[in-house]
Amino acid sequence: MIEFHGVSKRFADGTLAVDDFSLLIPSRKTTVLVGSSGCGKTTLLRMINRMVDPTSGYVDIDGDGIAAMPPVSLRRSIGYVMQNSGLLPHRKVIDNVATVPLLTGVPKKEAHARALELLDTVGLDRSLADRYPSQLSGGQQQRVGVARGLAVNPNILLMDEPFGAVDPIVRADLQHELIRLQRDLDKTVVFVTHDIDEAFLLGDQVVILQVGAHIEQQGAPSDILANPANEFVADFVGSARGKRRLMVDETADSRGDDLVLIDGAGYPAGVVDAPGGVLPGAGSSPKSRSISNKTDQAGDA
């Protein structure tokens, strides 16, 4: 469990990146901080491993204040995955995965054996172990980054837009791999992204942030989708709404009792039982005819 207590951060140049932020991040769940660039989400993430220290307020991990913990050992106990993988270009894949165990003095042989297992875990072929990062594709590099983050078997995994720099197909692949991993590993994941679709797909808890890390809304994806707290959230969530809305396919032959539902891209998403060709509970407003849920997001991606 990670707790932010009234945390603020003012950088040396005077910008107030985080303004009085409080949040409880539950253990063994994925919490996604989502917001546009410059909203302070990365600063929040970096406060958890003391890459950034708050100007005021404090952060606790499992009830212990991290301000008293030495940054280097704290960071070694927390997995960190960043955009563009952040791998060390002069080290082979296997040494990159084993970076932290080797730093903490684990014998090389043992660290390498564990690193090979981790390559399996993240779905990489062991034959890649002796390559350098530049010889891997973007998606493979990100997988190595995730494996490195998992190398010390940390309770907490921080992910800073880890899939931001790969193409959409690879990204979808990596997202589902992360969901699978999280099902097996049960880590406390804090994930930062500006992509609301990604946030809804991955998050158990989603926190929507405005400039200064002001929380606009937090909760389960379905709650946020169903009841946006304010216009900003509705707008932010709605930028992708076209994709999420299902509608009756007017072109389909609907003389029977079934109506075909299509998604924003025009693909059939399902069939509803509609006696007499009328959608149950359908009024005249288009809003009531749109059905939003998370599952068809998963289907999209």
């Binding site: 960071r75 952040g86 060390l88 730093l103």
Partner: peptide, 10 residues
């Protein structure tokens, strides 16, 4: 970003 990442992992 390599330096940042080195810091981040400890």
């Amino acid at each position: 970003d390599v330096i940042e990442s080195a810091n981040a992992v400890g």
